[in-house]
Design a protein around this nucleic acid. Structure first.
Lengths: 145, 145
DNA sequence: GTCCATGCAAATGCTTTGCAGCCAG
DNA sequence: CTGGCTGCAAAGCATTTGCATGGAC
C-alpha cells in the first residue's frame, strides 16, 4: 500500500466526518474545514475524501444524489425521506446470515452490501396527514405495450 | 400528471432498456439508439431517461458510479463484482416483511428499498485463485486515534 | 533532504438547458 | 393547429488534474 503522510488537512477532514451524523457532501466538508483552515482548497478535500475511502476510513454513500460521505464505519443502513430529503442511520438489519444465503444461492462471494430504504419520515407523515386532501387515481402509462 | 407524447426516440430508448440486461449508461443507450435513429442527440436521451424514471417506467441504479439505468421493473437487487465491475441481477431477497420490521422499529413509512451486494463473481474468483500468491499483512492505518 | 500533499486554477466529463424548428395527437 | 419534443450547441457543476511550492518524516 502506498505511503501517506498525516497532514493537518487530512486529519481535519476525518474529524469532521467522524463528528457529523449528517452525511455531508464534499462542499459542506470544505466549508466546515475552512473554519479551521481558511486556506484549504476544494481540490484537497476531494483528494483526501478519495484517499480516505480507499483506505477504508470513511464510506461513500451513493444512494440519493452525488457524493455524500459517512464517517461512521459501524455496519448500518440508511433511510432517505422522499419528502424532506433527510438521510438517517439505521441499525443494520441483517448481515452475515443474509450474505451466506445470497452467496449460496448465486455463487457470488459477498464482501458487503449496501441497503437504502426510501419512504416518509415520521415528521413528514404527520405534516402530510394534516393536510390530506384531493386524491386522483393514477392513469395508465402510454408506454406499456 | 403532465401530458406526454409518444415519440419514436422515447420508444426506442425504452426498448433498449427493456431488452438489455446490462444496466447501460446514458452514453451506451445513446450509442445503441443511434443505430436506429442516427440523428438522435445525447440531450434527448437524458431528457427521456429522466422522464421515464419519473413515470416509473425504468429505474435508475445508483450503486457504484454514475447513472446506470434498468428497464427491469420487477423487484430485484443487484450484485456488483468489485473485480470486473459487472453488475448482475438478483432475485429480491426479501421485501414486505423486511419493510414492516424496519418500519415497526423506526417509525418510518417505507415505500421501497435498494439493496446492492458487493464482492467477487464466480469467474473472477476462479481467475484469482489460480494465481494466488504473495500475501502481505495489512498495516495499521495512521489515522486511527 | 525527499517526495507526498497542498493551493490554485485550468481542465474534464457527465448532465442540463435555451432556442428555433418539428411533429404527434 | 398546438404545445410537447427534438437536435444542436452552449452552459452548468461536481470532480479531477497539472504544476510549482510547501511541509511531514
Amino acid at each position: 500500500m502506498k505511503k501517506t503522510r498525516n497532514t493537518r488537512q487530512r486529519g481535519i477532514i476525518l474529524d469532521i466526518l467522524r463528528e457529523s451524523h449528517e452525511h455531508p457532501t464534499a462542499e459542506i466538508i470544505y466549508r466546515d474545514a475552512r473554519r479551521v483552515l481558511p486556506n484549504i482548497s476544494l481540490g484537497t478535500v476531494y483528494r483526501n475524501l478519495k484517499l480516505l475511502v480507499e483506505r477504508g476510513l470513511i464510506r461513500e454513500l451513493n444512494g440519493r444524489g452525488f457524493g455524500r460521505y459517512d464517517g461512521n464505519l459501524a455496519r448500518h443502513d440508511h433511510f432517505t425521506c422522499q419528502v424532506c430529503g433527510q438521510i438517517s442511520d439505521l441499525a443494520a438489519s441483517e448481515d452475515r446470515a443474509l450474505h451466506r444465503r445470497v452467496a449460496a444461492r448465486t455463487g457470488f462471494e459477498i464482501s458487503h452490501h449496501r441497503m437504502e430504504f426510501y419512504g416518509r419520515c415520521p415528521s413528514c407523515r404527520a405534516k402530510a396527514s394534516s393536510r390530506a386532501r384531493a386524491r386522483k387515481p393514477r392513469s395508465r402509462s402510454p408506454y406499456t405495450r
